[in-house]
C-alpha cells in the first residue's frame, strides 16, 4: 500500500529532485519558505510528467553519449564557421537543396535526439520524417554531394544513437 502511495506521489523521483534543486539554486536560499514551495513545484512536476505518460527511456551505453556529444560540439562549431562564411562571402556556385535519408532508427527518443542534432547544426535542417517508411527529408544549405551527406548522417549520428537507445 505504502509503496503504491509512494509511486503515486513520486512517479519520477530523479526529475522531482532536479526540479527541487534548481528551484533552491534560483532562489539562492534554503529557508523554510522556498524549501516548501520548491517541494510543491517538484511534486507537481513529477505528477505532470506522469500524466504525459512518456515512454520509458532505456539507455544501453551511457558512455557513448559523451562521445556523441563531443562529436556534435565539434560538428556544430565547424558548421557555424561554414554557414557564417556562406553568409558573409556568397559564392554563386553554391546551391541549397533537399535530400532524402533512409533511416533505420525507430525509437521516438532517439529520433527526437537526432532531430535536435540536425536542426541545431546550422548547415542542416530537419524538415520531415515519414514514420512508415523511415525516410527523412533534410534541407542542406551547402549541398555538394548528396551521397556524402547521407553517409555523414548515417555514420556519425544514426549509428551511435542506434547503439545508445536500441
Amino acid at each position: 500500500m505504502s509503496r503504491r502511495l509512494l509511486r503515486w506521489v513520486l512517479p519520477h523521483p530523479i526529475l522531482s529532485a532536479w526540479l527541487w534543486l534548481m528551484w533552491l539554486l534560483l532562489e539562492q536560499s534554503a529557508r523554510p519558505g522556498p524549501l516548501l514551495v520548491g517541494l510543491v513545484v517538484a511534486l507537481l512536476g513529477g505528477r505532470a510528467m506522469a500524466m504525459l505518460q512518456p515512454q520509458r527511456v532505456r539507455i544501453r551505453r551511457p558512455g557513448l553519449i559523451l562521445k556523441l556529444a563531443g562529436a556534435v560540439l565539434v560538428d556544430v562549431a565547424r558548421s557555424n564557421l561554414a554557414v557564417a562564411l556562406v553568409v558573409l562571402k556568397p559564392r554563386p556556385e553554391r546551391h541549397a537543396g533537399f535530400i532524402r535519408v533512409p533511416l533505420a532508427l525507430r525509437n521516438p527518443n532517439a529520433l527526437a535526439a537526432l532531430a535536435c542534432i540536425m536542426t541545431a547544426t546550422p548547415g542542416t535542417a530537419w524538415v520531415e520524417f515519414d514514420v512508415e517508411d523511415g525516410e527523412l527529408l533534410l534541407h542542406v544549405l551547402d549541398l555538394v554531394d548528396e551521397a556524402d551527406w547521407v553517409r555523414i548522417v548515417k555514420d556519425r549520428y544514426e549509428q551511435p544513437l542506434l547503439e545508445i537507445f536500441q
Binding site: A120, P122, A125, V127
Partner: peptide, 16 residues
C-alpha cells in the same frame, strides 16, 4: 534567398 535557406541562419546565434 529562400525561406528554407533562411532557417539555417538563426541557429548560428543560438548555438555558439
Amino acid at each position: 534567398k529562400s525561406f528554407y535557406e533562411r532557417v539555417h541562419a538563426p541557429t548560428i546565434g543560438t548555438s555558439y
